[in-house]
Amino acid sequence: MMTSSIPLMVMIMTTVTAQPTEPPPGRDITEIVGHWAYDGFFYEGQRYPKPNPDLNLIFTFNRDGSHRLFWERRNEGVFCERKGEYVLANAHLTQRVTWVNPENHFSCAQDPDMHMGREVTNKIDVRTSPSGQKELGIHLDLDGKPFIYILVRVPSLSAAWNFTRLHW
């Protein structure tokens, strides 16, 4: 089983783009509008839980094309936050950072995703898990192998925090 910290996972997610594939037809932006909590990842054909159970990571995608990424490590007083714009086209999500919280922990500066103007494009898919939960998969290439970052839809920010705290 892989063990690593989430800042590394966030850095990997944003510094490596998906391998070119033949994308399916366009996607409706409403598929990803809402709050999504980090739940784990797929690697080498196996699903893993998030490596750090004290990590709360929430993506929020708004209808107007804006988005927010916020994560904290419970009991450490460490958080990183950024906002940006996104475009969903042909099953690919492009995000551009337009604001970085000046109160972010100093370690956030090591994460390329926390830099103004950073733009990244990844293949995504939205699916329903066997348990009936909506999942957003963000596809990456890690050392030449597929890596899928898994987020689950939650109905609200308070539900997102409860999900990440109670899920583990």
Rank of each mutant, 00 (worst) to 15 (best):
T121G: 08
F70I: 04
M13G: 05
F41Y: 15
P53V: 10
V126Y: 01
E44D: 14
E135G: 05
G132T: 07
A160D: 05
Q19M: 14
I12G: 02
Q19C: 12
R74D: 04
R63N: 13
A37L: 08
D111C: 06
N122H: 14
P49S: 09
T164Y: 00
M2H: 09
G45P: 03
I12L: 15
N101D: 15
P112E: 05
F59C: 01
W168Q: 07
A160H: 03
I6W: 00
N101H: 09
R27G: 12
H92T: 14
Y149C: 03
D64N: 15
E81Y: 04
M114K: 00
C108T: 02
E72W: 01
T17C: 10
H139I: 05
E85M: 07
P20K: 14
Y149Q: 06
E85Y: 03
F147A: 08
T21K: 14
H167P: 01
F59Y: 14
I58S: 00
K123I: 01
S66A: 08
A89H: 11
S107N: 06
D39K: 12
T14Y: 06
R96C: 07
Y149M: 06
A18W: 04
S129W: 11
L142S: 11
L136I: 04
T94S: 14
D111I: 12
V10G: 00
P53I: 09
D39W: 02
V10A: 01
Y43M: 07
P25G: 15
D113N: 07
L151P: 00
V78Y: 05
H115M: 07
P102K: 12
L93T: 07
F70A: 02
P23V: 12
M2W: 08
G40V: 06
F42T: 00
N90Y: 14
E103C: 02
G26A: 15
Y149D: 09
P51Y: 03
F147G: 04
N122A: 08
D54G: 10
V154R: 06
G144Q: 13
P146H: 10
L69G: 01
F147R: 04
T21S: 14
N56C: 11
E85F: 02
E72A: 04
A160T: 07
R68T: 08
G132L: 06
L57T: 03
Q110I: 03
K145T: 12
N122K: 09
G40E: 07
T17V: 10
R47I: 01
H35G: 06
K145N: 14
V152H: 04
V97I: 15
Q133D: 09
P7A: 02
M1Q: 11
Q46Y: 07
M2T: 11
G77H: 06
G84H: 03
H139M: 08
M1N: 10
E119N: 05
D111P: 01
F42Y: 12
L88P: 02
Q19I: 13
W99H: 13
Q19H: 12
A159E: 15
F59M: 08
N52V: 01
